[in-house]
Amino acid sequence: MQRVNMIMAESPGLITICLLGYLLSAECTVFLDHENANKILNRPKRYNSGKLEEFVQGNLERECMEEKCSFEEAREVFENTERTTEFWKQYVDGDQCESNPCLNGGSCKDDINSYECWCPFGFEGKNCELDVTCNIKNGRCEQFCKNSADNKVVCSCTEGYRLAENQKSCEPAVPFPCGRVSVSQTSKLTRAETVFPDVDYVNSTEAETILDNITQSTQSFNDFTRVVGGEDAKPGQFPWQVVLNGKVDAFCGGSIVNEKWIVTAAHCVETGVKITVVAGEHNIEETEHTEQKRNVIRIIPHHNYNAAINKYNHDIALLELDEPLVLNSYVTPICIADKEYTNIFLKFGSGYVSGWGRVFHKGRSALVLQYLRVPLVDRATCLRSTKFTIYNNMFCAGFHEGGRDSCQGDSGGPHVTEVEGTSFLTGIISWGEECAMKGKYGIYTKVSRYVNWIKEKTKLT
């Protein structure tokens, strides 16, 4: 034993070699072989497995989906700052455009905790909710729209109204504003409101030439003092309507412009014939205590009207009353817009006519005020429907199939267009061939041609 100890002390290297040989010859039971080890760690190889990531292109799944990435790591994937920024906006807080917040056709661009709407022409605001041009839906104005110097929408209202708090709607500024039905039992019968379409306001006024200088022999019209197929109006439903009495009662109609003036057809009036105007009328054979009678003290036909040349060209006249009318729910003026808007309103496509005229061709006159909704007829169809001249200051309205029309005794009465609950004068009943005849239409004086003249002559002093 002493000898062994001496050998170990003198030859430590020998001992180490012996131990190493023993270990190498022993069977290893701690580690699995290569094949079995792979069965336990069965993990798919990654895209760049075996390579240094710093030297390969980034992978979106590896960089940002398996674990949260930084902007720089995302930049490695896209290799483009702009594309990385677009991805980053949604990656950080989701897609803010998912709810489609942009209105009126706006395009949404996502941002971090926010979004941006790219608005089409005519709109602005956070969600493109603000109209900035009158060309689109009248700028959301209830009545009139004008573009300011910086191309912003400025709404306005006709006389007797003021802008509401929203700067879009119009509200009454006087007790009985024009064009409004205020009798409670008839307010439910107000005709369907007309909503502004998209309009090209630059070209809204037709490029028409008034044929002022045409000389033409007097034409022989049949029954051209021209509501057939209409309905009984309720008291106060058309408070701007008046009836004219002269040699015979209810020979023509008219509309209240203001307390002192009536507008009617020029062919209705004769110099030297006494005319009485009755406002607030409903049943011409009954006294309903809503009527107001006034005498006409002055007749002003349009300066281009000449019955000797043509009885229905420039067929418009103004009547001055001896005493002002007292405005109330049964006696209310009709609204008159400017030339541009009167023309736009007419193009809405349908209007209402009213009167006490004959209820059928050569038949009896109506006792109760009649009204009828009539569609506008395109000019080409209008011209083809008659052998008589249709001037540019006239328009056609009615039904091709016949059966409904204005008729004798309705002449001078109103053709009105309702705009968001307020009625505007767009025409004056003038003439036609018979009444409600198939293929024939009622012919009306186009008020847009005469609004400046009306307003100039009827100013209240």
Rank of each mutant, 00 (worst) to 15 (best):
I336H: 00
D223Q: 11
Q408H: 15
E86I: 12
K39G: 11
L321E: 00
V154C: 06
G21Y: 15
L321H: 00
Q216M: 12
S448V: 03
K168V: 08
G427H: 00
T426W: 00
D93S: 15
A279T: 04
E285W: 10
E231Q: 09
G280Y: 02
C119D: 02
P172C: 03
L460E: 11
T29A: 09
N328D: 08
G363L: 06
T190G: 13
Q167T: 09
Q408R: 09
T209W: 09
D110C: 05
Q185I: 12
I136M: 14
S255M: 04
V248N: 14
A37E: 02
Y47E: 06
Y161P: 01
N42C: 05
N135S: 14
A397F: 02
T158N: 06
V416I: 09
F31D: 04
C69H: 00
S182A: 11
V273Y: 08
I284T: 12
I299T: 14
K234A: 14
T84P: 03
N135E: 12
Y341S: 09
L163H: 02
V181M: 12
N166A: 03
N151P: 09
S365I: 09
E159F: 07
G421C: 03
N283C: 07
F395A: 01
T417Q: 04
L14T: 07
K387E: 10
R191I: 14
E208V: 09
L383N: 11
F395R: 02
T276E: 13
H415E: 00
D232N: 13
E165D: 15
L189A: 11
K247H: 09
L321D: 00
L103E: 13
D93T: 15
I7D: 06
N304V: 04
A37G: 12
I454C: 01
T290K: 06
S430F: 04
Y450I: 01
G122R: 06
A164G: 10
K260C: 04
K311M: 07
D315S: 03
C157W: 00
N222G: 13
E320R: 02
T190P: 12
L24V: 11
N80Q: 06
K440Q: 15
Q241M: 15
K459C: 11
N113Y: 07
G13H: 08
V199F: 13
I17H: 04
T225W: 11
R298Q: 08
K45L: 02
E286M: 11
C157P: 00
K347E: 08
C178H: 00
S406A: 08
K168F: 15
R46W: 01
E124D: 12
L163A: 04
A173R: 08
D232V: 06
R191A: 15
G412S: 09
I443K: 04
S448Y: 04
L41K: 04
V227I: 12
S385G: 12
K126P: 13
G351L: 01
N452G: 15
N328F: 00
